[in-house]
Computed example of a mutant assay.
Amino acid sequence: MRKYLSWLAVILWMCLIFYFSHQPATESSELSTGIAELIEITVEKVAPNADFITENFHHLVRKNAHFFIYLLLGVLLLHALKLNRIGKYRAMGFALLICVLYAMSDEVHQLFVPGRGAQVKDVFIDSAGATLGIIVYSIINRLNSRIL
Rank of each mutant, 00 (worst) to 15 (best):
residue 100 V to C: 00
residue 134 I to N: 05
residue 3 K to R: 05
residue 92 M to F: 12
residue 86 I to G: 05
residue 109 H to Q: 08
residue 12 L to V: 14
residue 69 I to Q: 00
residue 25 A to Q: 05
residue 84 N to H: 08
residue 129 G to P: 05
residue 57 F to Q: 04
residue 50 A to S: 03
residue 112 F to W: 12
residue 45 K to W: 09
residue 58 H to F: 14
residue 7 W to S: 11
residue 40 E to S: 08
residue 96 L to M: 13
residue 68 F to A: 02
residue 59 H to G: 04
residue 92 M to Y: 04
residue 55 E to S: 11
residue 50 A to K: 09
residue 90 R to A: 11
residue 109 H to G: 01
residue 17 I to E: 09
residue 43 V to C: 02
residue 65 A to L: 12
residue 105 S to V: 10
residue 105 S to K: 06
residue 107 E to K: 13
residue 136 V to P: 08
residue 124 F to V: 14
residue 4 Y to I: 13
residue 81 L to Q: 00
residue 36 A to W: 10
residue 38 L to G: 15
residue 104 M to H: 00
residue 14 M to I: 02
residue 16 L to T: 09
residue 4 Y to M: 09
residue 106 D to R: 07
residue 45 K to I: 07
residue 67 F to M: 05
residue 52 F to R: 01
residue 136 V to E: 01
residue 94 F to S: 06
residue 107 E to R: 00
residue 98 I to P: 06
residue 62 R to N: 10
residue 11 I to Y: 01
residue 27 E to I: 13
residue 135 I to R: 05
residue 23 Q to W: 13
residue 80 A to C: 06
residue 84 N to A: 08
residue 35 I to M: 01
residue 18 F to P: 09
residue 86 I to V: 11
residue 135 I to H: 02
residue 79 H to L: 08
residue 137 Y to H: 06
residue 101 L to F: 11
residue 4 Y to H: 02
residue 117 G to A: 11
residue 44 E to C: 02
residue 91 A to F: 02
residue 75 V to P: 11
residue 1 M to E: 07
residue 125 I to R: 02
residue 127 S to H: 01
residue 39 I to V: 15
residue 22 H to K: 03
residue 128 A to W: 04
residue 80 A to Y: 03
residue 95 A to P: 06
residue 117 G to I: 14
residue 65 A to P: 13
residue 69 I to G: 05
residue 126 D to W: 02
residue 80 A to M: 08
residue 14 M to W: 03
residue 44 E to M: 14
residue 17 I to P: 03
residue 144 N to I: 09
residue 138 S to T: 12
residue 103 A to D: 02
residue 84 N to P: 04
residue 57 F to K: 03
residue 111 L to G: 10
residue 107 E to I: 13
residue 76 L to G: 05
residue 23 Q to P: 09
residue 49 N to G: 03
residue 88 K to N: 04
residue 128 A to V: 01
residue 46 V to W: 07
residue 62 R to W: 07
residue 97 L to S: 14
residue 26 T to A: 02
residue 15 C to Q: 10
residue 119 Q to H: 09
residue 119 Q to E: 15
residue 108 V to D: 03
residue 96 L to I: 10
residue 73 L to F: 15
residue 112 F to N: 15
residue 140 I to W: 07
residue 2 R to W: 12
residue 5 L to D: 01
residue 118 A to I: 00
residue 143 L to D: 06
residue 12 L to S: 07
residue 87 G to F: 12
residue 50 A to N: 01
residue 98 I to H: 02
residue 56 N to M: 07
residue 103 A to E: 06
residue 112 F to R: 13
residue 60 L to N: 01
residue 42 T to K: 10
residue 65 A to W: 13
residue 91 A to S: 15
residue 66 H to L: 10
residue 77 L to G: 00
residue 54 T to I: 15
residue 35 I to W: 01
residue 86 I to F: 13
residue 144 N to M: 10
residue 123 V to K: 00
residue 81 L to R: 00
residue 64 N to P: 09
residue 48 P to A: 07
residue 16 L to Q: 14
residue 35 I to S: 03
residue 77 L to P: 06
residue 22 H to R: 01
residue 49 N to P: 08
residue 124 F to D: 02
residue 25 A to K: 05
residue 101 L to D: 07
residue 117 G to Y: 06
residue 16 L to W: 15
residue 120 V to Y: 12
residue 75 V to H: 05
residue 9 A to F: 14
residue 34 G to E: 03
residue 20 F to A: 13
residue 17 I to V: 10
residue 121 K to H: 12
residue 95 A to N: 02
residue 46 V to P: 00
residue 59 H to N: 03
residue 75 V to T: 09
residue 94 F to W: 11
residue 34 G to D: 11
